[in-house]
Write a protein that binds this DNA or RNA. Structure first.
Lengths: 144, 144
DNA sequence: GTTATTATGATAACGGTTATCAATATCATA
DNA sequence: TATGATATTGATAACCGTTATCATAATAAC
């Protein structure tokens, strides 16, 4: 597997903050990168635990925070209030379609909507920073 | 004050579910309607407590749930994960601009964005149900 | 290896929300 | 208005995701 770039980014971040390497952090980074989903901390915990049974929740949360800091990971909060973590490196900004039956996520981006969002917030005198957009519906598979 | 319509809706809902009237419920409804903000349960609790010192948190949450059920109230969850409750009766669908400095809310609706959102989700084979859109930025007052 | 410092895991604490439960209020009926 | 069935209440425990605490262990510069 070619985790090279992401590993490099993580190591640079550790170095920049005078933090140390650890087996746990390596394992968490790899488990995170090898799972192509929007993971909750608990889901990641269970995955890491298979290879590193002694790992604790705190380490998962601490490491996810580091991954977010260095741009490898983005924390998302949807309606259930549970934090989910998605890959950020090499992913451009996007929003989400979410199936209300099966929970399927689709990443989308619509430049025209983006443009109108910026126009809209500026029209109200705001300096735009970011946005969240989630479109809920029933996906093709679930509608059958 | 003309709370007539909202009171009627609430009473009809209670009747439909074979629920009883209570002083607390009346007071919570009035406090909610008389406050034109996006209240947290805790904020509403403090307001109600001024007129009804014995009220408990549970009753606030229970009554807010009833208000949501009968369409007088909508629960919102933003990034902090804390539920906020806004008036729904007589309010059309809208999204929110949120100032990241002062927390100011502005209700907005952009028909063109709405149209594109529906188009976008359909293009991915979803049957559209609803969406959330929050635009974050710094408002005019805070930018000075 | 020694030593200073950071990381770890167990677990307590936290904050918002919900469930539990005994006591109380409501309301249809007599 | 008294009765009795049922819903409501408030206090508080429980819950759940997340964070803080802290003693022990791992890391890495020397």
């Amino acid at each position: 597997m070619s985790l090279g770039k992401e590993e490099k980014i993580f190591e640079d971040h550790l170095a920049a903050k005078y933090l140390k390497h650890s087996e746990q952090r390596k394992e968490i980074l790899h488990s995170f990168l090898n799972t192509d989903r929007h993971l909750t901390a608990d889901e990641l915990y269970r995955i890491v635990k298979r290879k590193y049974p002694a790992v604790g929740y705190a380490t998962i949360y601490r490491t996810l925070k580091l991954l977010c800091e260095c741009g490898l990971c983005r924390e998302l909060k949807f309606e259930d209030g549970v934090a989910r973590y998605e890959h950020l490196y090499g992913h451009q900004h996007h929003d989400h379609l979410i199936c209300t039956k099966c929970g399927r996520f689709v990443e989308v981006v619509d430049p025209e909507i983006e443009r109108l969002q910026e126009k809209l917030i500026k029209r109200h005198g705001f300096y735009p920073e970011r946005h969240r957009m989630e479109l809920y519906g029933v996906c093709k598979q679930c509608k059958k």
